[in-house]
Every structure is written in structure tokens, then in C-alpha cells.
């Protein structure tokens, strides 16, 4: 490809330098306007009304990303598993809703019905979870902050629990007994074979700081969804409240 001169080098009535100056002026003006439009757009994005801690257009983008993710989601795709020798204790990163000590013998997990006014359908002792088939896995616990840790878990599948005690609702919500921490899960993630109601970590019963007597471990999500000290499980037709999603984070947080 050879360059095409705008004006012929000879016999040109126009001075190319002058012509270039004019074109440059016009282009800079157009570029300036485009930059102004762009800056206005970004400013609007930044300062639009908040929807759960983040400007509503950005919230819409997170929801769009969620739909794309769900369209691609494969229930058979598994989080990678590791050799148990790599397992270590993850850091205790949050104490929200956690009691310092718990009495496992008196612990109950409430199962709440779907609907506008959920009622407690069952109040199960920890033994009901121990009676479900036991599964072990060594997976990577990935924190939304960016760190990760390989951990060994043992517990019952959430899907087994749901099939035995729950409902076929599009969402599942889990809360601590005091309702101070709460997470929501889509059904596909809740029913995934690696979503565990865990009672053991690295071969030992859970400590209170890690969620004794029962916590969720969902390697398909960031760690914030793996709620500790589960006090209640609610089956819901609408998206359940989620502590961090109310504070600007994505509700779905799916891997």
C-alpha cells in the first residue's frame, strides 16, 4: 500500500502545511468533544443513584455479567481439587454474626418455607447433617480480596440436604442464628456436587472461628458466600438478601 498524498506535490493551489494545520485543528476539536462526551458519561456512571452500595448502571452491568455467566455455567464443571498435603488453615477473615463459643448439642438449623412470610418448617439438630452421606474434598478457598488457600473439608452435600428437607425454589438463603450475616445462592450453585455443609476442616471438627458446628463451603463462589455457623436455611422464589451484595459487591460472585 502506498501513501496517497492529499494534494499533488506539484501544481497544487493549496499550501499543504496550511491544510494540515486546518485538519489538525478540526481533529483536535472533534477529539475534544468526544473526550468531553466520554468524561460526562463516566461521571454519570460514577454519580448515578446507588443500588445496594454501587451506582445503579454498574449494578446493571454486574447483573448482565451474571446472566452471561449463567448461560455458560456447566453444572458438571468442578472446582479443581488438590492433594491433601497442600491443605492449610485459612485465615479467619471475618467475625460477622459469629459466636465465640457454641454448644453443638443444643444447635438447631431452622428450615424456612418459601413465600412472603416464611415459617420454620423444621428445626434440625446437627445429627441430621451427620446422618447424610459424608463427602470430603480438598479445594481452593478463594477470597474476594484476592488471596486463596487450599483447604480440606468434610461434610454433607447441600444438594442432599435440599432434596431431603427442602424445596425446589430458584434461590436458597442462609443466615447465622442472629441474622447478622446472610448469603444468597442460586439453585444451580446450591445443587452443585461441591457445595458442602461442612463440619470438619483439615481433619478436625470446625472451630467456632471457622464456623462450628456447621458452615457452607461453596468452591463455585468467593469465600464470602461460604457462610459460617449456619442458623437457618430459607427456600426462596426471589433473590435472598446477601450481606456483601448490599455493600456494593456482585450478588452472584460465581466462579
Amino acid at each position: 500500500m502506498s501513501a496517497t498524498p492529499v494534494t499533488s506535490p506539484v501544481n497544487s493551489p493549496v499550501d499543504p502545511e496550511q491544510q494540515l494545520r486546518q485538519m489538525t485543528r478540526r481533529s483536535f476539536a472533534a477529539g475534544g468533544i468526544a473526550a468531553l462526551v466520554g468524561a460526562t458519561g463516566l461521571w454519570w456512571l460514577k454519580s448515578a443513584q446507588l443500588d445496594d452500595g454501587i451506582s445503579w448502571p454498574l449494578r446493571k452491568v454486574l447483573q448482565f455479567n451474571e446472566r452471561v455467566s449463567q448461560a455458560y455455567f456447566g453444572p458438571d464443571r468442578l472446582a479443581p481439587t488438590f492433594d491433601v498435603s497442600r491443605a492449610r488453615e485459612p485465615r479467619v477473615n471475618g467475625q460477622l454474626g459469629l459466636k465465640k463459643s457454641v454448644d453443638a448439642a443444643r444447635w438447631r438449623i431452622d428450615v424456612l418455607s418459601p413465600g412472603e412470610k416464611p415459617v420454620v418448617e423444621r428445626s434440625l439438630p446437627i445429627g441430621a447433617i451427620h446422618d447424610l452421606p459424608r463427602f470430603e474434598m480438598v479445594t481452593e478457598f478463594k477470597c474476594v480480596e484476592g488471596w486463596s488457600q487450599v483447604v480440606q473439608w468434610a461434610g454433607a452435600r447441600l444438594s442432599d440436604f435440599i432434596e431431603k428437607y427442602g424445596h425446589e425454589t430458584p434461590f436458597v438463603g442462609l443466615t447465622t442464628p442472629d441474622r447478622k450475616y446472610y448469603v444468597g445462592l442460586d439453585r444451580a450453585s446450591a445443587m452443585h456436587s461441591q457445595s458442602l455443609l461442612a463440619y470438619e476442616m483439615n481433619g478436625e471438627p470446625l472451630t467456632p472461628g471457622h464456623g462450628a458446628p456447621l458452615r457452607l463451603v461453596c468452591p463455585l463462589k468467593y469465600g464470602v458466600k461460604s457462610i459460617k455457623q449456619i442458623g437457618a436455611i430459607q427456600f426462596a422464589n426471589n433473590r435472598p438478601a446477601d450481606y456483601w451484595a448490599e455493600r456494593g459487591y456482585d450478588w452472584y460472585l460465581g466462579h
Binding site: 456512571l45 454501587i54 454498574l58 449494578r59 452491568v61 474476594v144
Partner: peptide, 11 residues
């Protein structure tokens, strides 16, 4: 500003 950062990054 992690939450904000994630929202902007994923936009």
C-alpha cells in the same frame, strides 16, 4: 474501595 473496583473492572 474493593467493591467499586470490581464493579468498574467488570464494566
Amino acid at each position: 474501595r474493593l467493591a467499586q473496583g470490581m464493579a468498574w473492572h467488570l464494566f
